[in-house]
Amino acid sequence: MPRLQCPRCLRPETHCLCPLIPCLSSRTRVLVLQHPSEVGHALNTARLATMGLENAELRVGEVFEDLQGVLSDPNYRACLLFPGEDASPLAEVSSDLRPMLLIVPDGTWRKARKLLHLNPALADLPRVTLPSNLQSRYRLRKAPMAGALSTIEAIATALDILEAPARFDALLRPFEALIEGQIVAMGEETFQRNHAGGE
């Protein structure tokens, strides 16, 4: 008999995350462009992030036809959260009078680069980056590079910078509960052997 699923967070009803998902407001508008390969991912942190933010949207696809219209909204200054040689630290660009439209690609690094390639309007945007010394809370997967965060961590960190002194830690509660649940499911001994302190 299939397990009943929560229609909102898509988790089994016995592990529903909805009570942990906040409803946070922000000046910054967040648009997550998710590669289709991420939709079925067990954690799907991009979805959790946009569910917890009032001024956020998740779009799934590879080519986004109406992107130019979204990016040209005069009420927002569009920036792409993605590393690059010409990227500026987010803290240095957060003083503009207009709120930011923060575009966040969601996928592996290779898939995220593909999104940029398939959507030239993204490649033309000013790029912003997070501080390089950040540590991911995702204890079940070794980061592909120093400072790499999950999508929900990157969004929460970006909003902490852009909207200081407001804090967005509450956005991470369902993410941390998911990780704890996976650790419990695998057993503490297996976690310690395979993941704890394995840097």
Rank of each mutant, 00 (worst) to 15 (best):
I21F: 04
I21E: 12
P22Q: 05
V32R: 07
V32F: 01
L33R: 07
Q34C: 00
H35I: 09
H35Y: 05
S37A: 12
E38K: 06
E38V: 09
V39M: 14
V39Y: 03
H41K: 09
H41Y: 01
N44E: 01
N44H: 15
N44M: 02
A46R: 11
R47M: 08
L48H: 02
A49Q: 05
T50H: 07
T50R: 07
M51T: 01
G52I: 12
L53A: 03
E54N: 06
L58H: 02
R59S: 12
G61M: 14
E62S: 09
V63W: 05
V63N: 00
F64H: 11
E65A: 13
D66G: 07
Q68F: 01
Q68V: 03
G69Y: 11
G69D: 00
G69P: 03
V70S: 05
N75M: 04
C79H: 11
L80E: 02
L80Q: 05
L80H: 06
L81I: 03
L81M: 15
F82L: 08
D86I: 00
S88N: 02
A91H: 07
A91I: 04
A91K: 06
A91V: 10
S94V: 07
D96Y: 12
L101C: 15
V104L: 13
D106E: 08
D106L: 12
T108N: 14
W109P: 10
K111S: 14
K114N: 06
L115F: 14
H117D: 12
P120W: 02
L122F: 08
A123T: 15
A123W: 00
A123E: 14
D124A: 15
L125C: 10
V128D: 10
V128L: 02
V128H: 10
V128E: 02
T129I: 08
L130H: 03
P131V: 09
P131R: 04
S132Q: 15
S132K: 14
L134G: 07
S136V: 04
S136A: 01
R137P: 01
L140W: 06
L140N: 11
R141G: 00
R141F: 13
K142I: 14
K142Q: 15
P144K: 01
G147I: 03
A148C: 11
A148Y: 03
L149I: 03
L149E: 02
S150L: 05
T151S: 15
T151I: 04
E153Q: 08
A154S: 09
I155T: 12
I155S: 02
A156T: 11
T157S: 01
D160Y: 02
D160I: 08
D160K: 10
I161K: 05
E163M: 05
E163W: 02
A164F: 04
A164N: 09
A164Y: 11
A164Q: 13
